[in-house]
Design a protein around this nucleic acid. Sequence first.
DNA 1: ACGTATTATTGACAATGTAATAAATAAAGG
DNA 2: CCTTTATTTATTACATTGTCAATAATACGT
Lengths: 122, 122
Amino acid sequence: MNTSKSVDRGKVVGQGSLGEFEQMVLLAVLHLEDDAYGAAIQREIDERAGRRRTISAIYVTLVRLQDKGLVESRLADPTPVRGGKAKRFFTVTPVGVVALEDSRQAMDRMWEGLESSTRRAD
Amino acid sequence: MNTSKSVDRGKVVGQGSLGEFEQMVLLAVLHLEDDAYGAAIQREIDERAGRRRTISAIYVTLVRLQDKGLVESRLADPTPVRGGKAKRFFTVTPVGVVALEDSRQAMDRMWEGLESSTRRAD
DNA sequence: ACGTATTATTGACAATGTAATAAATAAAGG
DNA sequence: CCTTTATTTATTACATTGTCAATAATACGT
């Protein structure tokens, strides 16, 4: 039965738990400012974090992020270079920025005091 | 009805991408040193990151982390206080520490340059 | 012995991670 | 022209992680 309609959990903004990859995509978009589209985001994540992901991984995540209102997108001006569908550019919404900062802060607190003591003598 | 050949998808260490919660659990265990058992880990995450999770969420993650060799565990000395099963204490393995540092480093690079500019004027 | 408090374990399902594959679109080349 | 090829977005499918509810174990108090 699912007659409920309140239960806003799992709907709007997953209550503050962004996945690691979602965070990376969000951060890449922020870095790219006005040039955040699929391929560029992929490259950014590869260069910065050293994580090579397929382009589809990027897009799927982007779609989900948009569904949750953490990013917005618009189609590019009709000036394609060589072919391909019109580029879709993304921007992080204020809500997205907050979610990002929240995740960062939570992790910072978890790391607090361990910064340089993550060594074990075995 | 089950043509699958016993499914041996038991990978060694999932390519090195820890989930955010897995990281928190790992970090909590590190903080707790010699007192890292279920309830304590739960409390640690709640107090530090402000994330209140059910005890089962903790355990399930712990089990998976152990399957991947990122933590080890042993049962406590038979000196329970009030009742309950013997406590199971966890420690992070060297591999776990490395995975943790890797994740941290990747995120740090993604944040690099945005630390205090996550504000948008729109 | 029985109920209760304390801890661990299992089962089920939602959310996120990731890749293979498809679709769209326009320049290039014969 | 029309077929090929390059560029980019979108969809489908399945694996891994996140999360909680329910259950099992175990020892203390009465």
